[in-house]
Design a protein around this nucleic acid. Structure first.
Lengths: 191, 191
DNA sequence: TTATTATATGTAAATAGAGACATATTATCA
DNA sequence: TGATAATATGTCTCTATTTACATATAATAA
């Protein structure tokens, strides 16, 4: 049982769904291709952590809807009682920053401009999701779902994503201020 | 040429060093074991992106000190002219948060307490590194190294690490406030 | 009617990364 | 003197992940 397997069980603990749905839902939290997920689901089914039902659909191809077994729930409980592993972040922008001085400041700036756009697009997504999630909770606006709410986890993670993303946006903007463009340099020296 | 290969070249652009040094230095930015690094260095040497010199040491075992070739520098320049890929983050705490409701609030709280300690330890490291880096720049305190400075990249990345880590600390503390411990619940209901 | 897109599920092959196995030097501590 | 830890370099195997290959249904757009 690897981390992704537990992740699939975790998402199934919220609601039963197909491998395809799991693939789409888990992306923001643990990137994985369908080619990784389908074999793991088959193994989880074989080991009786999950079971599936064949669902016929008229508007779409048929699907297998997976749900947790008692064994699956118990596995999640044990997993939750262990501390989380250290998060792993791999960002080639970090690596590029270390040799940035090999190129002109415009080329260097482009790295940050592109990344800033990436973070801004993420911000747009989050700004959509927050009221959407608030709506689903059925709570009055600005009220936080409680630990028992099925939306508590999603709310916690959205808040984290927002605050980290905002910090990253500020960092990109600050970095761009530090890397004056040649045009700005020229303008500055004229003044 | 994969990302880690470029990462090794990037670190070599700052100063020539051994595979062992590269392994230690690259950890915070792109986790990699020596078993991954040594074969890549051999390949980079074969492809003439780097060259090495055998250095005898009296106080330690001998080492191979790698340095960039012109081809290596050119490869870095081309790599820098392409936008950075999307960062990849894998954190099983995210996955655990989605099924947290399966366990009692104390078990859930422990996840955040452990993670908070992790972030606090990182904060201590950063708080040490910042004045250390400031010192190396030779600049007066609170002055920011410029784009041309060999410490500019490290300074940018340290600032990012600090701001994101601080956001994560605040998030853990806020999450712990949201997950009242059973003891606190009991105390609250008595009041 | 045909092309494309989204849904849906799978396998095979290649690469990336982690963990274990292996060896050697030097310093330090008991 | 012997054990341990840090430095130093390598290989081998296994697992995780990505990319490519493969197929099929149903909706929609050209």
């Amino acid at each position: 049982m690897n981390t992704l397997s537990y992740g699939l069980l975790s998402f199934l603990s919220r609601s039963s769904c197909s491998g395809y749905d799991l693939m789409l839902q888990i992306q923001p939290f643990w990137p994985a291709k369908h080619s990784q997920i389908y074999p793991l689901l088959a193994q989880l089914e074989k080991d009786e952590y999950v079971q599936y039902e064949h669902i016929s659909q008229s508007d779409k191809p048929d699907k297998k809807v997976y749900s947790l077994t008692d064994k699956g729930i118990e596995a999640l409980r044990e997993w939750l009682s262990e501390p989380a592993s250290d998060p792993v972040m791999r960002d080639d922008l970090y690596l590029k920053v270390f040799c940035m001085s090999l190129v002109d400041s415009n080329t260097a700036r482009n790295l940050f401009i592109n990344r800033l756009q990436h973070y801004q697009q993420k911000k747009l997504k989050f700004d959509n999701k927050l009221p959407q999630l608030q709506c689903m909770t059925g709570l009055p606006p600005d009220e936080i779902p409680s630990f028992d709410s099925p939306f508590f986890g999603a709310y916690l993670l959205l808040q984290k994503a927002i605050s980290v993303n905002d910090a990253n946006i500020k960092w990109c903007e600050w970095a761009l201020e530090q890397i004056a463009s040649p045009a700005a340099e020229k303008r500055d020296s004229v003044e």
